[in-house]
Write a protein that binds this DNA or RNA. Sequence first.
DNA 1: GGATTTCGTCGAAGCGCTTCGCCAACGGCG
DNA 2: CGCCGTTGGCGAAGCGCTTCGACGAAATCC
Lengths: 342, 342
Amino acid sequence: MATIADVARLAGVAPSTVSYVLSGRRSISDATRLRVESAIAELNYRPHAGARALASARSNTIGLQAPFREGVDVNVIMQFVAGVTSGAHDHDYDVLLVTQGDGSHLARVSASSMIDALVVMDVEDFDARLPALRNLTMPTVLIGLPMETAGLTCIDLDFYQVGLITARHLAERGHRSIALLGSPVEVISRGTSYAIRIDDGFATGATHAATQHVIIPTGASVTGAHAAVDTLVDKHPDVTGIVVHNEVALPHVISRLREHGLAVPDDMSLVAVCPNNVVAAMPLPLTSVEIPAQRIGEMAVEMVVRMIGTDPQTRDNEVRLLAPRLTERGSTRHLEPLGSES
Amino acid sequence: MATIADVARLAGVAPSTVSYVLSGRRSISDATRLRVESAIAELNYRPHAGARALASARSNTIGLQAPFREGVDVNVIMQFVAGVTSGAHDHDYDVLLVTQGDGSHLARVSASSMIDALVVMDVEDFDARLPALRNLTMPTVLIGLPMETAGLTCIDLDFYQVGLITARHLAERGHRSIALLGSPVEVISRGTSYAIRIDDGFATGATHAATQHVIIPTGASVTGAHAAVDTLVDKHPDVTGIVVHNEVALPHVISRLREHGLAVPDDMSLVAVCPNNVVAAMPLPLTSVEIPAQRIGEMAVEMVVRMIGTDPQTRDNEVRLLAPRLTERGSTRHLEPLGSES
DNA sequence: GGATTTCGTCGAAGCGCTTCGCCAACGGCG
DNA sequence: CGCCGTTGGCGAAGCGCTTCGACGAAATCC
């Protein structure tokens, strides 16, 4: 492997000059820059990452903490990961995967200066990693919200608003009894905030619109979806509109509804909450609120990269909630005023 | 951050001694080792990864190349990733994610000595990354097989055998016409070898058993599954047993069969090929061949770690194909001899 | 036209670690 | 008792890079 000294020799300059060409931290005349660049190309030179990290106290790597938990949508996780990696790439960072949730791995990785910053995925309300994160001076961004966000920087879709606008959307179309088919119980009981926030928003939205509502946790499986629909039909036959926030269950919810003789949207209005590629794969167009997972991953990187190099003291932590947008695709119908139904 | 010099000072030894305590490369008396260890603990010392990489020419990091492609099962991908990370952790390695498929990222990462070895996922027959990989002296293991494996080390489930034993299983139970509902066309036309290998095995197995067979590429979506089942029912009504190698389509295949009035296993025998957690989530027990994705990920790491430190010349490349095992769960029935059906 | 600034480049120090060679002390052996 | 092989530890070199201060030369100013 060629070193910076080799390049310098070939270009007839000092190693430091090569370094400055590479980093752009000092002005270099066009003539020498060109010579250095061609030497670099000729030798196919790549700076040694370790040496660079040692000398500059920067590794140009960000850590991605991604616990692989039960019940979470792998699809969404993958999109976060894809967003983070592509965002990192855009900013010339690499991504180190940190999967062990116990924090010891995290501590090792951060203390050994392998990473300059950290992105944490799938945060719970009382996340076990929180204490470790709080006394980490390293720039950190959480994807998702814990219960107590003081001193933390977070980004997520505003699921409260998701609940609110989906409830309102249905209410505005005349639905007087609506349901939310949400996350599996294990996700909720773990205290995963997005599940709780969408519930709250949904309840509030429904209440404001003087609409009946019910929330049905839904397992991320065929049986889970079927059970939820069965509950809906049996216990809440007056429900005319549902919101489904469960990517895995979604198709099975639709087919189970059909088995019960309920067509979307004629007999049941439906709003999906999931990534766009999931609704695109559905057999019928669905009105939906997108979960822009990839975008969120990219934004998380952007935030964390901006934090690098700023003084931890002056850093002001923000909680960034993306406003959801509902896209109509005709899977929710207008209910006629009572008595005028055909 | 404490350095090795701080530890040495506190323990009253030379820095090199601390290093030897850490690496175990030279014998150290119990007395000093204890002193050093307690100094390490007291200062909460972690070696600087960059410095270590620089001095030892080892980064203790393996690269994981994971292209995020259309049509592949994210679930399986995630299990590979989980296996690789946990395997890496077991061997005291970290994992660097390399997602950009174009190879430039790979080149940069490997040339800058960020990684000691590489695991490549989702390999295609004529994979674009192959040329880059071949003239990489770094230990590399592919998960999946390309067309030409000379000079490469690969690991995968033996999908040819999967096709063979599933076909035979159905044939042995008296099925005279069987079908394989496999990967989406885009996966096949990309030349993804597992899809092709299972097809070959299935065809051969069926032919040997003098059984009719048909292979139906199946889209990884509700509509894809429905289309495949519709094709099956319309064009191949004599088929009595199917193998489904498509995790996403699987539940929809089953429900579509039911919509056609075909129950599993009474009217249609079914063998699934997918990870165990997927069959577990199905509404009925399914006879299946497991895809041990996590295990494969771990084994890939094991192989690649063993390769590190061995001379590239003497390294003999192996292609390791895991023998599949079929687990009966009662979703395939014995067909009665002709005329004796109830 | 001298003083001052700016520009482009160099040299050297040092980041924190590993590893090699060296050496002192210590037994075991003939 | 002298020799030699082991053992346990030390010191220093050096891995490849960044960065700071220095320094001519050219440009700018009054």
